Structure formats: C-alpha cells, structure tokens
Amino acid sequence: MGKAGRVACIFTPYVLTIASLICIIMVGLGCTKASSDTLNNLYFIRLDLSNISQGSGVTSEITDRLADAGITSVTAEEVSATIKTFQDDGNIADFYDIGLWGYCEGNSTNGKDTVSTCTDPKAQFYFNPSSILGMSEAQLEKELGSGMKKTMNVYKAVSKWMFIAYLVAFIATCAQVLLGIFAIFSRWGSCVTTIVSIVSFLFTLGASLTSTIMFSIAKGSLGTALKVYGVEVDLGKNIYVATWLAVAFSLAATFFWMFSTCCCSGRSPYGHKDRHNTRGSITAEKAPYTYEPIGAAHPPFGSQQPQHGYSTSYPPPPHHNDIPMTHHNQQSSAYEPFRHA
C-alpha cells in the first residue's frame, strides 16, 4: 500500500483525536464567560438558592429536615435565623454554577436563568461555599453538620487532582495532533503517537471518572445538608456529555493509532530497483562457486569443454574437442582459463 493508503489509514484516528480535543476544550471553557449561553450551560454542579425563602419560618418542616439530614448541632430556630440572613443579604445570587476553572452566578427571572458574572479562571480551583454565603468555616461546619468539614477537605484535594488530570489530557491530546502528521510517513511515527494517545486516554478517563464521582457524592452530601435551608443541588448535564465523549473519542483514536503501527505501510511494492533491471525483467543471480567459459561469442576462443569435470550446457564442437590458442604466438597447447563467478 502506497502513501495514499497510508494517509487514508491515519485519517480516522487523526479526526477522532481532534474530536476528543474539542470536547476537552469545551469542558475547560465551561463557566468562564458570562455572555455566552453555550458556555454557561457547561457546569459540573449548581447550587440553587432561588427557593430559599420557602423555609423562612420556624416550622415543624425545618425540624423534620434537620432530622433527615442528621444535623444535631443546630436547632430549628438557628436555621430560621440563618435563612433570614440569607434573605437579607443582597449579595447572594439565585444560583451558582461550578466549573473547572471557576464559577458563575446569576439570577432567575420568570423561570429564566441569567448569568450575571463569572470569576476569573484560576488553576486548581475549588468552590468554597463559606466565602459565597458569607459564613466562616467554623460556622458553616456548625450549620451543616460535623462531617461537612471532612467532606470539604476531600473535595479540595480531589479538585486539584481533577484539574491536573484534565490539563495533562489536554496537553497529551495536543501532542497527538502534532505527532499524527509524522505518523503519515512511517510506522515509527504511529508507534510514538500511540504511546502518547494511551497517556491521553488514561488521563482523560481519570479526570472524567473523578469529576463524575466527586460531584455525585457532593450532590448527595451537600444536597441533604443544604435542603434544610431550602437550597437545591443539581448536577449539570452538558459538561458530563462532553467529558465522556472525550473519553470515547480518545479510546477509539488509541485503537486506530495502534492499528496503524502494524498495517498500512507507506512503502510501494514497485519501488525496489535492486530486484529489477531497467527493462522490468528480473535479474538472476549467479550461484556461488560456479565456472563459466567464454563462449563462441568471444573469438578467437570459441566453445570448449570445461576442465576438471565441470560441465556446461554447451554441446562439444562437431570436429574437435579443443581449440588451441594462436593469438600473440602463444603455445598451441594453451587453453583459455575459466572465469570464476
């Protein structure tokens, strides 16, 4: 298969690699630009405080919520006072969307969510609800239960690993796009690209698993604790579709890169001149240790019988067996030596 076949073989994994890169970029761009509705819909988790006024009074409902959440460190009166504080605080938005680099906040009007501002992108970002709600960490731990501090510490550490995993996946996928060009010309290029593709797939998979598991756990723990205050916790949809599509494209690209290392050679089967002469006929090689006499086409010697028992395909002359050498007055008994191939 020639170069055209090699290009066709590389085309499929190359396109899959670009598709995976686009999906990773979409994950990274989520919650970074307030004016983009598309990017605003890319978030891992949302804290919805728009219904916080529903629990403003000291009712038996708040007591039931505390019992369901397992929070025994605060009373219903304290919860009611905290809710009243949230209502009076004009800086608290209706919802908060958490992304990879930061978060966005906005308000809900007539059932329509409008993002007002987004934070500047920050490496190894993690969402700190105490700073958003205007509460100290000690007060937040008291309000949400003793296990909340441990949960937040785990979330902080895992968020850093998740950010690093996405960053490595992005860099490795970009390297695939560059190395894929060299894979067109040789299988060695495909081999190097395959190694980088495996690294990209593993880190993309690790980042996707981390984000999905971590925020699913956060939804369960935070959702239960914040439900007491009328806060709802929901997972995003589009960003998880994007991250798992990146995993699927990366896996498929890795498979086809591996396939290109053992198939679709770029060499042409008609380009080996050492096996053919200029007219296209096959050049026969002489076997070792054979002797070839100079035939009749090279006078004055003519055809002759071989010496020392070696035979040729030439028949003996009809009149005599030996032709004496007469050139340059050489002796008549001399004979032509045989050539050694």
Rank of each mutant, 00 (worst) to 15 (best):
W161Y: 12
L133P: 03
K156P: 03
K142Q: 15
G106M: 01
S159L: 07
Y103S: 13
I171W: 13
T114N: 12
S159P: 12
S136W: 01
G99L: 12
C118I: 03
Y155T: 08
G111R: 08
C174V: 15
A123E: 14
V154Q: 06
V154M: 08
L133C: 04
W161P: 00
L167Q: 06
S108L: 15
I132K: 04
Y155N: 11
C104H: 10
K149R: 09
A157E: 00
L133H: 00
L133D: 05
V158P: 05
F125W: 07
V115L: 12
T119M: 12
Y126W: 12
K122R: 05
K142E: 09
F127Q: 05
F127I: 07
I164A: 15
M152Q: 03
F170M: 12
G145C: 11
M135W: 07
S136Y: 01
A169Y: 11
V115R: 05
C174D: 08
A165P: 01
G145M: 03
K160N: 08
N107W: 14
G147W: 07
E105R: 13
G102N: 15
T151R: 02
K142F: 01
Y126E: 03
C118S: 12
Y155H: 13
F127V: 10
S116V: 14
Y126P: 02
W161K: 05
M148G: 01
P121I: 06
Y166W: 10
G147L: 07
G106K: 01
W161F: 15
T151G: 14
P121F: 06
S146I: 10
F125Y: 14
K160W: 00
F170C: 08
Y103D: 06
W161V: 15
T117M: 04
C174L: 15
L133Y: 02
K156D: 13
F163W: 15
G147T: 15
S146M: 01
F125I: 04
L144F: 08
L144G: 01
W161M: 06
G106P: 00
A123Q: 12
T117R: 08
F170D: 02
V154N: 13
K149V: 08
I132W: 09
A123H: 11
G145N: 08
V115C: 14
E137G: 03
L140Y: 04
N110F: 13
T119N: 10
A172T: 11
S131T: 14
E105L: 05
N128Y: 04
C104I: 10
Q124P: 00
M135G: 00
A172L: 12
G145V: 05
A157C: 05
K112D: 08
K122P: 00
S159K: 01
V168H: 02
G102M: 04
V158R: 04
P129F: 01
M148I: 14
I171F: 14
Q124C: 10
M135L: 15
I164G: 06
P129M: 11
K150Q: 13
L140V: 00
S130D: 08
K149I: 05
I132Q: 13
M148C: 04
